[in-house]
Design a binder for these strands. Sequence first.
DNA 1: GTCTATAAAGCGATAGAC
DNA 2: GTCTATCGCTTTATAGAC
Lengths: 202, 202
Amino acid sequence: MSQESTAGQDRTYARGRATKAHLLDVARDHFAEVGYRGSSLRDIAQRADMSHPGLLYHFPTKEALLMAVLERRDQVDGELTPVRGEDGMLAIENLIASAYRNESHRGVVELFAAVSAEATAPDHPAHGFFIDRYRSLVARLTEALEKVAADGALREGVDPASAAVRSVAVMDGLQVQWLLGSTDMSMGDAMRDHFASLIRDM
Amino acid sequence: MSQESTAGQDRTYARGRATKAHLLDVARDHFAEVGYRGSSLRDIAQRADMSHPGLLYHFPTKEALLMAVLERRDQVDGELTPVRGEDGMLAIENLIASAYRNESHRGVVELFAAVSAEATAPDHPAHGFFIDRYRSLVARLTEALEKVAADGALREGVDPASAAVRSVAVMDGLQVQWLLGSTDMSMGDAMRDHFASLIRDM
DNA sequence: GTCTATAAAGCGATAGAC
DNA sequence: GTCTATCGCTTTATAGAC
């Protein structure tokens, strides 16, 4: 869905784009497995059948490579754009669908789990990226839950803002347990159960 | 609470224990800040006013140091031992109290957030440790929620096993958002809200 | 029990050839 | 665009003095 299939255009430019996209896939998988601080440019380059200066030709620093991986992933992932302006339930179904989808994209789950935890350190290159990401996710979900509340579908005593923070937290925390294999629970099922405890008749 | 105050015993043995305990505190803080893979023995040793071979005298490898830090922390932390055999609510109050307590122990929160995410990689030295830890936590919490259910205090439609996994997930996920500072919500308050959505009259 | 010195390997990044 | 070679630095771990 994300790389290749650029054949038939200007050779040099098309080839350049394909290479870059391929490198981003490889780097994403590697960051996912050992985190950003645990990754080396040599290992990533070797995995893409390239020398590490070859890799650095496309991305000037290791940090630039990480940011490119994160930003590209966020564009592709629908999780962050749960259809604004619609009736809140659509956004929530979207988040649940994202949890199910993640079950067949282990690499993405590993990437965000490993790097988001690393990035809590203030000097981490992706620190600001994750602050923005969580704020945006929580804000959109709060908005969605407020709409659900306006329709009278929220259970009594549920505060939209607190529930939004917790819902994003469940999503995150589930990923660690799922990756470890300490539970065989489906992340999608668990997210549905979670929202069922917040919303009437789900 | 954890080191020092061993004065007045056998000098050599007492001093040795105090040094070791002090090194564990320092290492815990450092692992917390940059993760296991991002830490160096030199930095940890320097922080404890010691050379790195001095540190390696007490812990033969970096991996042994990490495992010692994790196991010691788990002993001290009450979170994992929420009073078995009592009426489920006590265990739940214990977990909420642990969330409040964590708010004044940022280093511990950072340690478990950074290392648990790293440890999802199968070759990580703490991989098995975290699988055991989560299984044990979820099992105990499931047991507690089953007791609450037996008292008829669980809201309709709440499954103890699924709710236990999610509750541990909320706890974990909250820590990342709290560490990033992307929310100013209290982790303890959020955990209380969470359980209130599962249990009647909380 | 702690040190200095050092080995052996790996790191990110650059220079310069092709 | 990609390579080899290399710089300067850091890593874990060990040897051996005190």
